[in-house]
Design a protein around this nucleic acid. Structure first.
Length: 737
DNA sequence: GTTCTAGAAC
DNA sequence: GTTCTAGAAC
């Protein structure tokens, strides 16, 4: 931890023979500060400039534009002109990743020295400074500052000499910052500083020094080979020193791809424990492709399912990561999944593929995964071959014993979570704390329970397998309390509503509504009186109408059908379970068209909905449901929504989605039936509710945006508001409430 | 209804 | 610089 001890250049080496090599010695310095907001970049510059006898210019992106934030280009041009004037330059911007730094490293060509000072201070400190600076005290602003800082931290790439730096100084605490200020502050116009990396932090300074020495020998300064002084140094998992040397020395990289991934995703944080996010502390699940090896599952289909399930779960895993692992570099499944995930824009920080041995991800690949999945056999026994054999063998008898305690067999599509005893070599060497055994569908006639070519069953089971695997991983992460705490803090709550916005929307509302109606104003008024306002339905809004009237054309989507109603999945489900029960009668476009004559139809729709709820509840008791109608639906044809109350879906994307199910705009089926019975029509709620602030449907707390709301509802366990608990509005496994 | 994307918000 | 929303097009 005594980071500055390694620093050989605390005092600047004074230029000798002044005059003779004047040009060499007066090379101006381009000094890139690197750090998140609040890390003290500007203060660093100010301090150095205050005490320095050298001419410095500070290029600060936050103020370059007449005191306001400017662009990178402006910074580059100002820096270039300062260099022309013979000044050394501070590049005072976050410079958080390599790409951000690259253009600044070209400044002034070889006639300038390129330095970096990394202000890698504890995230907490940066956040609190950043809050103070903006003068926004309080939870909300604090929460935002934290989010900004942590967002940046998750992207940070520490600078390396190979990028083109002559000297990099790492500061992990304020003492180190002070020392760096002194180093640069006491640098006279003719002085220079030794090249190299200084102040790197590591849990084992001796190893660090050893590697520094070794690398100096092996790679002369300036050689790109001197880049990764921190690359293969594990932070928390004990590794024999010898092995560290060996790997570095012999360049035994697992594969180009994995090293590339490793560099990109993990190296950054491997040496840093001060940031809020360290790669070793990010909960990570490594999993092999299920069923595609010995069980011969079609690779195209399997890759679709993997990507689909990852997409489904990724919003629920917080800051954790999912990694698909395959031993072979030319793995077809890996490349298929990689391409499909990229196509779907899945966050590559949260999900990526990795080439390597799943039992040696940390020691060989530098990737720390606290949980690994095993493509198990139904007996949960070692052997067979492939991943199963490898994992049981690497984990030793401890895994076998621990597995036996949990389960004796496994059905296809299911998984069993086994905490790995600390005596297991996988725990000790790789830092694996849990193994999740998963059994996928088998398409291989030579293995038990072969489905032959029944890919309908096969796909269903494979989906189930990944779902239970990811569900299992989430439960581990949650029980260990390592999912990002940022998003579920109390600071999210009690956010005032934006009244201005609300009134604006209300004003717009009427004209909008009229725009949607067809016919002249006169017609409209007449129709309004008759309660028969009909919309000019756009072509896209006719899809349900077409299904209801021509179900034979849509056999693939129809789950159940009678003369009166039809059941289908919502094409873009807004929750884990989201069905539509369609009325099949023509002319019943929406709930506005309903009258007493439709009471029995409404009851049928409700009963069919309830039947499906029962089915879903028998599969998952934890679900809760509401059945209801949108006051003003977007799609033509009366349809009842049957929706589970988790609202856990990637398709729930905006305020309208949320509010259409969680404000009075959503009319509970029981209330609709009652009102039609009593009054003959339904009182619609206008769509100003769609623009309301976002509130949790359970605890009613307000949230500033959809991601924050979703994060909150993923964990809110507050009881539902009293009104929902009455008259059977909410349906649970305990029956209707 | 969704997708796309400009620009606001952070 | 990135995230998020909201409006237009379909």
């Amino acid at each position: 931890m005594e980071s500055m001890e390694i620093d050989g250049g605390k005092t600047p080496s004074k230029g000798v023979n002044a005059g003779e090599e004047e040009k060499e010695k007066t090379k101006p310095i381009v000094l890139l500060l690197m750090g998140v907001p609040g890390s003290g970049k500007s203060t660093f510059c100010d301090e150095v400039m205050r005490i320095s006898s050298r001419l410095w210019a500070r290029v600060c992106q936050d103020t370059i534009n007449n005191g306001k934030a400017g662009t990178k280009i402006q910074c580059l041009s100002l820096a270039a002109s300062a260099l022309k004037d013979g000044k050394s330059v501070f590049i005072d911007r976050c410079n958080i990743d390599r790409e951000q730094r690259a253009d600044f490293l070209k400044l002034g060509g070889p006639q300038t020295e390129k330095h970096a000072v990394v202000l890698d201070l504890p995230a907490k400190l940066c956040i609190s400074r950043s809050v103070k600076r903006t003068g926004h005290e309080g939870n909300l602003q604090g929460g935002r500052a934290a989010a900004v800082v942590n967002q940046m931290l998750s992207k940070k790439e520490l600078p390396k000499l190979s990028e083109g730096f002559n000297r990099i100084t790492f500061c992990h605490d304020e003492r180190a910052v002070k020392e760096a200020v002194n180093v640069y502050g006491s640098l006279g116009p003719l002085d220079s500083l030794p090249s190299g990396c200084f102040g790197q932090k590591n849990s084992d300074t001796k190893i660090q020094q050893g590697i520094m020495k070794f690398l100096k020998k092996a790679d002369p300064p300036g050689n790109t080979g001197s880049e990764p002084t921190q690359k293969f140094i594990p932070n928390e998992i004990p590794v024999k020193k010898g092995s560290v040397f060996q790997r570095t020395k012999m360049g035994q990289r697992p594969s180009d791809e994995s090293v590339e991934k490793f560099e990109k995703r993990n190296e950054v944080d491997i040496t840093s424990t001060s940031g809020a996010i360290s790669a070793d502390s990010i909960p990570t699940l490594a999993f092999p492709s299920i069923s595609t090896a010995d069980f011969q599952f079609n690779l195209e289909k399997a890759s679709d399912i993997i990507v689909e399930k990852v997409e489904e779960f990724i919003s629920r895993i917080g800051n954790a990561r999912l990694v698909l692992v395959d031993l072979s570099h030319g793995s077809k499944i890996l490349s298929l999944v990689k391409a499909k995930a990229a196509q779907k824009n899945i966050d590559s920080n949260k999900f990526f593929t990795f080439v390597g041995d799943i039992t040696q991800l940390h020691s060989q690949g530098g990737l720390h995964c606290n949980v690994i999945a095993n493509a198990a056999n139904w007996r949960l026994k070692p052997g067979g071959g492939g991943v199963n054999a490898a994992i049981f063998s690497a984990a030793g008898s401890a895994l076998e014993v621990a597995t036996k305690e949990r389960a004796s067999s496994l059905r296809p599509g299911k998984c069993v979570i086994v905490p790995l005893p600390s005596s297991s070599p996988l725990f000790l060497r790789e830092g694996v704390t849990h193994v999740i055994h998963v059994l996928g569908p088998n398409m291989n006639p030579l293995r038990p329970d072969c489905l032959k070519d029944d890919y309908i069953q096969g796909c269903r089971i494979l989906r189930e397998a990944y779902a239970s695997l990811f569900e299992g991983f989430i439960s581990i992460v949650k029980s260990h309390g390592v999912v990002s705490k940022l998003n579920c803090g109390k600071s999210d709550e009690g956010i005032p509503t934006n009244d201005d916005q609300k009134t604006k929307r209300e004003a717009v509302y009427e004209s909008d509504k009229n725009k949607k109606c067809k016919g002249s104003q006169q017609d409209l008024e007449q129709k309004s009186k008759d309660k028969k306002v009909s919309k000019a339905w756009s072509s896209w809004a006719q899809a349900l109408y077409d299904v209801a009237l021509h179900p034979d054309k849509h056999k693939n989507v129809v789950l159940e059908m009678s003369d009166d109603v039809l059941v289908m999945n919502d094409a873009y489900p807004k929750a884990r379970q989201h069905l539509l029960v369609l009325a099949r009668v023509d002319g019943l476009d929406s709930i506005a068209d309903v009258s007493r004559e439709h009471i029995s139809l409404l009851k049928t729709m409700h009963a069919v909905g309830l039947k499906w709820v029962d089915k879903f509840l028998s599969e998952d008791k934890s679900l809760l449901f509401r059945l209801g109608y949108h006051s003003v639906p977007s799609m033509r044809q009366l349809h009842l929504h049957v929706i589970s109350q988790d609202f856990n879906s990637i398709h729930l994307k905006n305020k309208k989605h949320w509010n259409s199910f969680n404000t009075p705009f959503f009319l509970d089926s029981v209330d609709v039936i009652k009102e039609v019975k009593e009054a003959g029509t339904v009182t619609l709620k206008d769509d100003k509710f769609l623009a309301m602030e976002l509130r949790c449907h359970r605890c009613r707390s307000a949230h500033p945006n959809i991601p924050r709301l979703k994060s909150h509802i993923s964990s809110c366990q507050a009881p539902f508001p009293a009104a929902l608990l009455q008259n059977g509005r909410l349906v649970s496994s305990e029956g209707t409430s």
